[in-house]
Design a protein around this nucleic acid. Structure first.
Lengths: 213, 213
DNA sequence: GGCCTTGTTGCGCAAGTGTATAAATAGCCC
DNA sequence: GGGCTATTTATACACTTGCGCAACAAGGCC
């Protein structure tokens, strides 16, 4: 009796990923305070002590988890931009639509985003991780906007371009938040439609017949 | 030696407010995990045991603190709407401008907002407090938008009005976040100008000469 | 001024935390 | 199949946490 628990050895990268995923799950469900090493380990199917074999401490685990989250979010968001043979305007619309539907609009992701961002004030490492992801996102927006306006024969100066990008970024972020916090208040696709309309109005694009395809 | 600490008796309401303020300060500075009863009490200038004289437990203290925060935020936000002798369009612009400048655009407030919202997923009481403040805000937006459009002789149906309010709310929220997280990236008044422009574009208002007063 | 109420302190406690470390065993190499 | 090693478990530890409770004293009341 009192037999020692059976276990399997996993590859290093696999185990690290499992621990990071378990961390994100725990934070999303119980918050930062509820995400203890024991909770995380339980969810990952290991014992708490193992975590220190892969991470110097809890803080580093949390930082890596946040970095992973930001990485996945921006990766998914940008993925919608790689459409070949599409007009800039269509690509912008597709980008907005992708960012205002599942899986990006998601309560769990929002909960994680807010939780970590709340600590960014006190933790420079988290603040940096956020800043990098955010600026990358906005650069992407600015690039597409430039293409859209160029296709319309318009030549905005740098300041105008920047202000458009800021506004469009705000529209996407704001709608994303509304969708995450109260998904049941919107019909499917409604947020995306509102977003595309608002953004095309911001850019002064003339509405296309049939709404927006 | 070992003298007992001197203290003053405060009025009940005053002490409760002090404790709530100390709680918000602690959460903003150290996050939810760092906001321990002892930290809060230290900042309030009392000992930890006293907190239980005013609140059933830590959870209730946090909930009341969040409710107080939401109340103050929406109160400040709505205050900009009570301008007499101003056109609806001017009132809308004033509302947007007020929401995109200090003291509403503030790192500390954002940190608190994000921290509590991150836990709203798991804590229904926090979720309710947020929902109430949010819906009140959006109703306010919708009412002003209705006035603005009426002044332009336009008669939007309920759905159109709702979509405008959603978009405008998103613009304000999104710019608010950008401002809170990276205030140094924007010149004074820039965010408000971007917001007013975006919102007037959303509503299809013709630009007024001299930009927006 | 002395008493009485109750706001307030100070201390203790059990539960839970992150970390340290020794003991065990899974799985590869030969 | 028998070691070797590094992954994994298990346990211990010092510390912090929220909470309970008894003693104390501040300040109103007579």
């Amino acid at each position: 009796m009192n037999a020692r628990r059976k276990f399997r050895r996993e590859g290093e990268e696999r185990r690290r990923q499992d621990l990071i995923d378990a961390t994100l799950d725990s934070v999303a469900e119980y918050g930062l305070q509820g995400a203890t090493l024991r909770t995380i380990a339980l969810r990952a199917g290991v014992t708490a002590g193992l975590i220190r074999h892969y991470f110097p401490g809890k803080e580093e685990l949390l930082q890596e988890a946040y970095a992973a989250l930001v990485g996945r979010m921006t990766e998914q968001a940008k993925a919608a931009l790689v459409m070949e043979d599409a007009s800039p305007r269509q690509r912008l619309a597709a980008f907005v639509t992708a960012n205002l539907n599942a899986p990006i609009v998601d309560r769990r992701v929002f909960s994680l985003w807010a939780t970590f961002l709340g600590r960014a004030n006190a933790d420079p490492a988290l603040a940096r991780a956020h800043r990098e992801g955010y600026l990358g996102f906005r650069d992407e927006v600015e690039a597409v906007v430039a293409e859209v306006l160029a296709a319309e024969q318009r030549k905005p100066d740098a300041g105008e371009l920047r202000r458009h990008a800021i506004a469009i970024n705000a529209i996407i972020d704001g709608l994303w938040i509304e969708g995450c916090l109260a998904a049941e208040m919107f019909s499917p696709g409604e947020l995306a439609a509102i977003g595309v309309n608002a953004i095309e109005a911001e850019l002064g694009l003339t509405p296309q017949k049939g709404g927006n395809q």
